[in-house]
Design a protein around this nucleic acid. Structure first.
Lengths: 201, 201
DNA sequence: CCTACCGATCGGTAGG
DNA sequence: CCTACCGATCGGTAGG
């Protein structure tokens, strides 16, 4: 375990403060204060406040995208399981960065913001692809794959609001139960027969 | 249709700017500019910037709580349907206020923040109660009612991120499909038999 | 890493 | 509703 560089300490403190108070309500002096420094001392390690945000958000995006590297040819249910477990794993392990990612990305300058939106769309596409393939091959039974994708990602994304890394459930237990809810929502076959609904009459 | 008061116009403009740029990145001069006023002119209609946020957030909380006034003795599936449709209705109709509510409530001063947390908890309790009752009477099949509640509310809450009031689906169509996903996730009985899962072996 | 300091902007008030 | 203005604070730089 090498000791963290001063730069890493600054990023850590900034992430913590951005998470709890938001980017605009955190001043450079606040960040410096966490490390018993003066605000001006930060600038020999970093370029700007914006750069701090960009690095934190980019790192979180990296973690999510890396976790989503799955084989499109795999069985859709197994692939979706990897995607869901990967998402929750990144959430729990990188809760600080993930929270800043979801909450503060829009304060990035135009160019960085476009990049992040593109990467978020690419991430979402993994889920959509798995769900659409599952619909076609009969693994899932879903009327509207696009909306089903938004549903699944919504249930996952909001979890940073209530996740507690030291909570009652460990990562695997949380994954098991979240997966069961998601797979049921998608009407995963063939373990369960189709059911009748009002609309079918 | 009475014309809006100046105060309502200010709240509207503030809500719009808070939604898109966040509370701290919006200045009183920005809000005034929307109405072709000087910043100082706002203060004959409102007391402070904080009060603007409080009113917007409170109004959204009112709308959600009012929509959640359901009969606890009603059949759990029917009650949950009311809760889900009510939530989506408020989201679509009050997207501006709802977005500010979810994103900016934490910038309220301590006392208002405590009130909002209490009201949010009361709101959540309606969902949890319906889901727990449904588990007990066999309407739903859910291993962990608390987590299932968080799952359902996560899927609903995040929707402000992608909801488009002029989108492809109208409110009823969206409600139908979201309900189908949620009810399936909760394994709603008796229309569908229990299924086997890996863990059951 | 510090002190000293910059221009810009903030929420808000006085006074009319 | 405006002009004029307040003290505080912002992100950041100069210079050592």
């Amino acid at each position: 375990m090498r000791p963290p560089t001063r730069r890493q300490e600054i990023l850590h403190a900034a992430g913590d403060l951005f998470r709890h108070h938001g980017y605009h309500a955190t001043s450079m002096r606040d960040i410096a204060g966490r490390l018993n420094l003066r605000g001006s001392s930060l600038y020999s390690h970093i370029e700007s406040k914006e750069q701090l945000l960009r690095e934190i958000v980019d790192e979180a995006a990296d973690a999510f995208l890396e976790a989503a590297e799955t084989d499109p040819e795999e069985a859709p249910a197994a692939r979706l399981e990897q995607l869901v477990r990967g998402h929750l794993r990144v959430m729990v392990r990188e809760l600080r960065g993930a929270t800043v990612f979801f909450h503060e990305w829009r304060f990035l300058p135009e160019e960085s913001r476009r990049e992040i939106v593109a990467r978020r769309d690419a991430y979402q596409q993994h889920f959509r692809d798995a769900i659409e393939r599952g619909g076609r091959d009969g693994s899932f039974r879903v009327a509207d794959p696009h909306l089903a994708t938004l549903f699944v990602l919504s249930a996952l994304n909001w979890s940073y609001q209530w996740l507690d890394p030291r909570g009652r459930l460990d990562l695997d237990g949380l994954g098991d139960r979240y997966l069961e809810l998601i797979m049921s929502a998608l009407g995963d076959e063939p373990r369960r027969p189709r059911r009748a609904r009002k609309g079918d009459a």
